[in-house]
Structures are given as structure tokens and as C-alpha cells.
Nucleic acid binder design. Structure first.
Length: 227
DNA sequence: GTCCAGGGCCTAC
DNA sequence: GTAGGCCATGGA
């Protein structure tokens, strides 16, 4: 499994190159983006992020001071905007209550401890917490998601594993604890699944096959299973 | 018009 | 612990 996962990583990296995620200027922008992109396309989330920026609200104190009523219309494009406005405020409440509003202080906390804290915030689930840890905090916490699960299924690597934590552990137990690799690996899987396999009649990594209503790559033959 | 995107919470069983 | 409903935009 170690060799397989590393082999897939190298194939993806060779095919697509570094993805250089997350597309954001600073850590808080990553965090806001991670919440706003929940179950919506990045383009929709990006519009909402830019709107907050436009009104100088893309910083912890401004979100903290703003009401849900003020924030919600600005992030309308990100879908579920009332809930997401609440979520952004839940995060800044946590940040000010525990770290005096300082992301620097927050990110000095041990990775697993901080992960638990983030998961206690209403609106921050596993994928969002791991995205914050990895892409904002540069901490080695692998991000799994729907693409990752689909990807592993497609290549027959899931072997009955299904939960988020199981999939996350599959990567963390089998590839080096390397923030750069965690960062690129997740970004490459998303890029492969979304930008390439979905948009092109054939992709460089594997042939495309239509299953049910979605388009999936389905041939594992490009990756040798060494174990 | 239909489909679906880089989820998470709540409730019921 | 998990299946299903809910939230409720915009581009293809």
C-alpha cells in the first residue's frame, strides 16, 4: 500500500505538476474559503470571499464584530449563506475567546489537539478542520473528501474502508508525514477528479468511463499494485 | 428545464 | 454509526 500510494502520487504530480494550493493570500482567507466552499463549487465560494474582501471584512476582528444579518447577503453566492455566516462567526468567536483573535497563537497548538478544538466548533467538520490545519496552518493533517473516496474506490484501494477517519488514516499511515506532500496530494486528487477527468473525454492518468450519472475514471492499470 | 459542486448538522433508528 | 432531510446559488 505504501508503494501504491506513493506511486499514484508521483503519477499525478508528473502529469499535472504542483498545484500550489490553497488559492488564497493569507491564512484567514484560507479558513474563510474552507468554510464557504462546503458543498459548493470553488467559483461560487470565491465570489463570496472576494465580496468580503471588497467590504474589508476578510479579517478576524471584522467578522467577529459583524452580524450574521450583515454577512449573509455578502456571501450569498456560496449557497447555504445563513448557515455559513453563522459558521464564520462561530470560528472567530472561538479565535477571540481562546487566542485573543490571534491565528499565530492558535497555530502554535499541537496538531491533534487543535484538530479536536476545531471539530468542536459548530460548522467545522472533518474536511474543513483538516483543510484549515494543512492549508492555513501548514500542519501535517491529511485532507480527505468525496473526490478522495471516489478516487480510492476507482483504483480498488478502499478494501471496505469508508469513513472519513479511515481514509485519512490510510494516507497518514502509508505516506511520509510531509506537509508538502499532504498539500499536493489532496490538491492533485481534486484536480484530477474535477478539472481533468470530468472535463476531458480522456485523461492522462486513466481512461474515462461513465458510471451511473457521473463520469469516473475506472481503470487502475496505470498504477501497479505492489502489495 | 436538470444536474451538481473541494460539507456539516440534526434527527431517527 | 449511519441514512436521510435540510440548507438553498450559479454555471454547465
Amino acid at each position: 500500500m505504501k508503494k501504491t500510494l506513493l506511486g499514484i502520487y508521483n503519477s499525478l504530480l508528473n502529469s499535472y505538476g504542483e498545484r500550489n494550493w490553497w488559492p488564497a493570500k493569507n491564512r484567514f482567507e484560507v479558513i474563510v474559503g474552507a468554510v464557504l466552499v462546503q458543498n459548493v463549487s470553488w467559483s461560487n465560494a470565491e465570489k463570496a470571499v472576494n465580496n468580503l474582501k471588497k467590504y474589508n471584512l476578510l479579517n478576524p476582528p471584522s467578522i467577529h464584530k459583524s452580524s450574521v444579518k450583515k454577512l449573509a447577503p455578502l456571501i450569498r453566492s456560496s449557497r447555504f449563506y445563513n448557515q455559513k455566516a453563522e459558521k464564520l462567526k462561530n470560528f472567530t468567536d472561538y479565535l477571540f475567546n481562546n487566542y485573543n483573535g490571534s491565528l499565530n497563537k492558535m497555530f502554535t497548538v499541537d496538531t491533534e489537539k487543535l484538530r479536536k478544538e476545531l471539530l468542536d466548533i459548530k460548522g467545522i467538520g472533518r474536511e474543513t478542520a483538516d483543510s484549515i490545519l494543512l492549508y492555513a496552518g501548514k500542519k501535517p493533517s491529511f485532507v480527505s473528501d468525496a473526490y478522495t473516496k471516489r478516487f480510492l474506490e476507482r483504483y480498488g484501494l478502499l478494501n471496505g474502508l469508508s469513513s472519513y477517519e479511515e481514509i485519512r488514516s490510510l494516507f497518514m499511515d502509508n505516506i511520509p508525514e510531509d506537509t508538502y506532500m499532504y498539500n499536493e496530494y489532496h490538491a492533485l486528487i481534486v484536480h484530477h477528479g474535477y478539472a481533468v477527468c470530468k472535463s476531458k473525454p480522456s485523461c492522462q492518468i486513466c481512461p474515462v468511463k461513465k458510471i451511473s450519472k457521473k463520469i469516473y475514471c475506472s481503470h487502475p492499470s496505470n498504477f501497479e499494485h505492489s502489495d
